[in-house]
């Protein structure tokens, strides 16, 4: 699936939930399905600075693609993290670094991901793209 397609699929999934509570229940469900982050990465070094909940993010190259794993100590945040990983993980650094994440607005999570909000999620998107940019730059040099 392309970056665009996977986002459209998420938007479709969310469209069936009219009620906010159902949306959040779905995010809780998603959080439970997020593959576990290796404990050794749950350290200060991999933490994304946010005001309230903690988010840890790890990235590694697997051939030509980046694989992300992450965790959070708050469930809703972890659900949103799971969404971001679903969209971004397994793509090339070049694709990720310029990714247009239009799904955030469309599923009504803009409040959760806006840069003014005091949590780590906006920083998480930024950090994912920074990893991609770093890997991309490295690829260009080879």
């Amino acid at each position: 699936m392309t970056l665009k397609e996977v986002q459209e699929q998420i938007i479709e999934e969310f469209e069936i939930y009219e009620d906010w509570m159902d949306k959040y229940n779905y995010l809780i469900e998603l959080s439970q399905g997020l593959p576990a982050l290796d404990h050794k990465y749950k350290t200060r070094e991999y933490i994304i600075d946010g005001c309230q909940s903690k988010v840890w993010l790890y990235a590694e190259m697997d051939g030509n693609i980046i694989r992300y794993t992450a965790d959070s100590d708050a469930i809703i945040t972890k659900g949103i993290v799971a969404l971001l990983i679903k969209v971004m993980s397994g793509r090339s650094p070049e694709e990720i670094k310029d990714a247009d994440l239009f799904f955030i607005d469309r599923i009504g999570l803009k409040d959760n991901l806006s840069p003014t909000r005091a949590n780590g999620l906006f920083s998480m998107v930024k950090q994912m793209k920074l990893y991609a940019l770093a890997y991309f730059t490295k690829q260009q040099k080879l």
Partner: peptide, 13 residues
């Protein structure tokens, strides 16, 4: 067992 941020977000809704 529930993070304060989760509690706050749900109560908000």
């Amino acid at each position: 067992g529930i993070h304060q941020e989760d509690t706050g977000m749900i109560l908000d809704k």
